[in-house]
Amino acid sequence: MQKTSLNLSAGIASVSVALILVGLKLWALGATSALSVAASLADSALDLMMSLGGLMAIFYAARPADDDHAFGHTSVEDLAALAQSVFIVISGVVIGTGAVRRLLSDTPTALAQEGRGIAVMVVSILLTVALVLWQRRVARMTGNKVVAADSLHYMSDLMPSVGAIGALWISRHFGVGQVDSVVALAAALMLIFGAIRIGKGAWDALMDRRADPELIAAIGELAGTWPGVHGFHDLKTRMAGSRVFVNIHIELDGDQSLRDAHAIGASLRRKIIETWPQCDVIVHKDVAGER
């Protein structure tokens, strides 16, 4: 219950910060007409969507398995991430296109009230850093992958904010407004490539792609050296949101009692879950040499 409360607190904090940042950056965009601020605004709007999705995923994924969802509800994380990635790509293309048009235009767009825009971006950076520090603390305490991923995403948002400050400062002191378009184009490319990475991960999970090969190898090494296990085969994994489902067949002495065989399989299962809490494990027991 305490871990769930911490995860929810991180999710609510993420949504709250995103709402504040969207409001501030909307005002700053109206005041400055800076595309770099628009790029940062789009990033914050996407953060808000992802934070809402993450918060709903924390609620929904925490539900226990039922008759209709025997393996739980964590796939909702992948569905949300895939939808978000598509929206991120569209936003990145729109911002990038606007930046290129400004760069090629014979009459560059003049920026205004750069000082106010810089103040807003500084506030957004401070709020983002505070949120990331809290999210990382919660992730360390609970091991929640949604919170950890959200923290990583917010960390990547700092660069567009810093870039917007630089573009506004250069425009204010040197009158070089084209820097704003360059920063916006770079931010748009970051959005697109980040969205592709997020979307690929979600797609792989929805298509039952195997888990990280390093994780599979580590589980295999643990099973192969577990007391009472003479070997293993058919180690299979698949991902669903923050969960990794593991199926493994272990080979045991056929002359031992069922109770002893069960104890070996159960202890191995507990050790895998203890070492990798994101795993849901099924251990099948076979007689050694009779595959």
Rank of each mutant, 00 (worst) to 15 (best):
S16Q: 11
L52F: 13
L35S: 08
L41T: 00
G54S: 03
D47S: 11
L48G: 05
L35T: 04
V37E: 03
G53R: 00
H69G: 09
A61P: 01
M56T: 08
S33V: 07
L35Y: 09
G72Y: 10
M56K: 13
F71L: 05
A61V: 04
H69W: 13
D68R: 12
S16Y: 04
A61F: 07
I20C: 06
V15E: 01
S33C: 10
A62F: 12
P64W: 05
A45I: 12
M50E: 13
F59G: 06
K25S: 03
V22K: 01
G72M: 10
K25M: 04
Y60E: 13
W27S: 10
P64I: 06
M50Y: 11
S14V: 01
L26R: 05
W27I: 15
A18Y: 10
D68E: 15
A65P: 08
A38K: 07
L26D: 02
L19T: 03
A42Y: 09
A18K: 07
S36R: 05
T74S: 15
S16V: 09
P64V: 08
H69Y: 15
A45R: 01
M49T: 10
L35F: 08
M56Y: 15
A57Y: 10
V17Y: 01
V15C: 05
I20R: 01
A65H: 12
D43W: 00
A42L: 15
V22P: 04
M56L: 15
I58K: 00
A61N: 09
L41K: 00
L26P: 01
S33W: 06
A65F: 14
W27H: 07
G30Q: 12
L26T: 13
A65W: 14
K25W: 03
Y60M: 13
G72I: 07
F59I: 11
A65L: 10
M49W: 14
L46M: 14
A38Y: 05
L41F: 04
A61K: 04
A38G: 14
R63F: 10
P64F: 07
I58D: 02
I58G: 00
M56H: 12
L24S: 09
A70W: 10
L19I: 12
M50Q: 14
G30I: 09
A34W: 03
A18M: 13
V37T: 08
A45K: 01
A61S: 15
G72S: 10
L19G: 02
D66C: 04
L52P: 02
A39S: 15
L29I: 04
D66N: 11
A61W: 05
L35Q: 11
W27F: 14
Y60H: 14
D68S: 13
R63S: 11
L24T: 06
L55T: 09
T32C: 11
A57D: 12
R63W: 14
D43Q: 02
A42N: 10
V37Q: 03
S16P: 02
L48E: 09
V37R: 00
M49Q: 05
P64D: 13
D67P: 00
L29E: 02
V22L: 07
L41E: 00
A34L: 03
S36M: 08
L55C: 02
A42R: 01
A38R: 05
G23A: 14
D67Q: 12
L29K: 01
I20G: 00
V37N: 02
A28G: 01
D47W: 07
V15A: 06
G72L: 11
L29H: 05
